[in-house]
Design a protein around this nucleic acid. Structure first.
Length: 424
RNA sequence: GGAGAGAUGUCCGAGUGGUCGAAGGAGGCGGUCUUGAAAACCGUUGUGUCGAGAGGCACCAAGGGUUCGAAUCCCUUUCUCUCCGCCA
């Protein structure tokens, strides 16, 4: 969440930012609650002071009457404090609810716009493949080669689940290992994270675990949720800690499953593996000094590009518009890979996304860094290294051959142990 | 899962319900001494929050409770250690 002092001093900028993001938050309500909370806080503290003074008086020798009088007075103070505190808690809770709905400020260069068509393409890499046959989509390929089974998953679990079989298993494992090796070489600490996390961590990261619009599965009676991304467990890793500035930047490469409800999402553009309830992802996560975060964000984007270049998959990079930024993001880049089976005759489909969330998450999670002069909230960034489901789509569809087989990108072959997936 | 012990500041470690934001030591920082260093000595050394400021309030694993008053008493939870059981 934003610093409320900042909100108080930059009311118009905050409102403008909310408008640019096409969100609806009542900033004036937040400010009036903030003011009210501070008033109540001061009242409560003034009475607590009286209580402390009253208690201090009783340290000295007193007559019974004097003592009794003080005790009576103390009892009265105690009741008053209890009442005031109850109101204070109520107001604080309301304030917290409202304030956490205010999104992060956006980078001044982030394009202003409402939806994905307003995103700004900033580069493109690779050649869109031209087939001298009609390319299949990955659903067809997966079925023909017996490597992905949606129908059985629907029977056993439900729609938007899948079994990977045969070589697809090794393709997924290869993508993970290929990515982990690259990231480890770049100084990221490899991590396999839990797939569940507490609600408070979700909220700190900026996810809303509750409500109809939530994309998150909650596990009944446990206070936990299935994570939608390792961003949650990696960001939560340092919650409530003070980091030594010399240890920054801290870089994690986290492998986890990702679970998303994806309610209502269906249709041609989300078919097959594209939008599923469970997938596997290697996520990059960085904690750094505020002054480093812009450069670090560019670095994460470059790493994502390097990974897809290594896979020889054509992609373009877009600078996400304000309306399409998640609430915690200050700026976001997406890589969209070419997917020959998408839409009528192929289309770009998002495969990675990297966000600089500045101190929006660290403030809520309580993650600071310290050096000689400073103790401040640090900046947190995340980026997809590889979401295996979508990477598998890109590999299958781009590398398909006329005979229905699929070639494996060169850099992946040492990890798969085979260079082609063909019909048995 | 069962039985027991414990959790205090950067670390070690004391703490009878009121004089405890917390003894003492170590470490850090500043200084005296020294050609320099060590030793010795002196001083200083938590965080958060509200407030323009003065200053206040909160925090002794976390959350509740008892009390005029809780680091100290009671309950719950978490974690650590020892022993037993179970287990991939």
């Amino acid at each position: 969440m934003l610093d409320l002092k900042f909100v108080r001093e930059n009311i118009e900028e905050v409102k403008e930012n909310i408008k640019n993001r096409f969100m609806n938050v009542d900033v004036d309500l937040v400010l009036s609650l903030y003011e009210k909370k501070n008033e109540l806080l001061q009242e409560v503290e003034a009475i607590r002071k009286q209580r402390n003074e009253n208690a201090a008086k009783m340290k000295s020798k007193l007559t019974n009457e004097e003592r009794q009088a003080l005790i009576e007075e103390g009892k009265g103070l105690k009741d008053t404090i209890a009442e005031k505190e109850a109101t204070l808690n109520e107001v604080s809770q309301k304030l917290d609810d409202e304030a956490s709905r205010i999104p992060n400020m956006a980078h001044p260069d982030a394009p202003v716009g409402k939806e994905d068509k307003d995103n700004l393409q900033i580069s493109q890499w690779g050649e869109v493949p031209k087939f001298n046959f009609k390319p299949k989509d990955h659903v067809q390929l997966g079925q023909d080669l017996d490597i992905i089974d949606f129908d059985t998953a629907t029977k056993v679990t439900g729609p938007k689940f899948y079994y990977l079989k045969n070589q697809a298993v090794f393709l997924e494992l290869a993508l993970i290992r290929y990515t982990m090796d690259k990231l480890q070489a770049k100084g990221f600490t490899p991590v396999i994270t839990p797939d569940l996390a507490k609600e408070e961590i979700l909220q700190g990261i900026g996810f809303n675990p509750r409500g109809a619009e939530s994309n998150i599965y909650t596990v009944e009676d446990t206070g936990m949720c299935l994570v939608g991304t390792a961003e949650i467990t990696l960001g939560g890793y340092l919650s409530k800690t003070m980091v030594d500035a010399n240890d920054l930047p801290i870089k994690f490469a986290g492998l986890s499953h990702c679970f998303r409800k994806e309610a209502g999402a269906a249709g041609q553009y989300s078919k097959g593996l594209y939008r599923v309830h469970q997938f596997t992802k290697v996520e990059m996560f960085v904690f750094c000094r505020p002054e480093e975060s812009d450069a670090m964000h560019e670095k994460l984007r470059e790493i994502e590009e390097e990974i897809f270049q290594g896979l020889e998959i054509p992609y373009r990079v877009v600078d996400t518009c304000t309306g399409d930024l998640g609430a915690p993001a200050y700026r976001k880049y997406d890589l969209e890979a070419w997917m020959p089976g998408r839409g009528e005759s192929g289309d770009w489909g998002e495969v990675t996304s990297t966000s600089n969330c500045t101190d929006y998450q660290s403030r809520r999670l309580g993650i600071k860094y310290k050096d000689k002069e400073t103790k401040e909230f640090l900046h947190m960034l995340n980026g997809t290294a590889v979401a295996t489901s979508r990477a598998i789509i890109a590999v299958m569809e781009n590398f398909q051959q006329e005979d229905g087989s699929i070639l494996i990108p060169k850099q992946l072959q040492p990890y798969t142990g085979f260079d082609r997936i063909a019909k048995k």
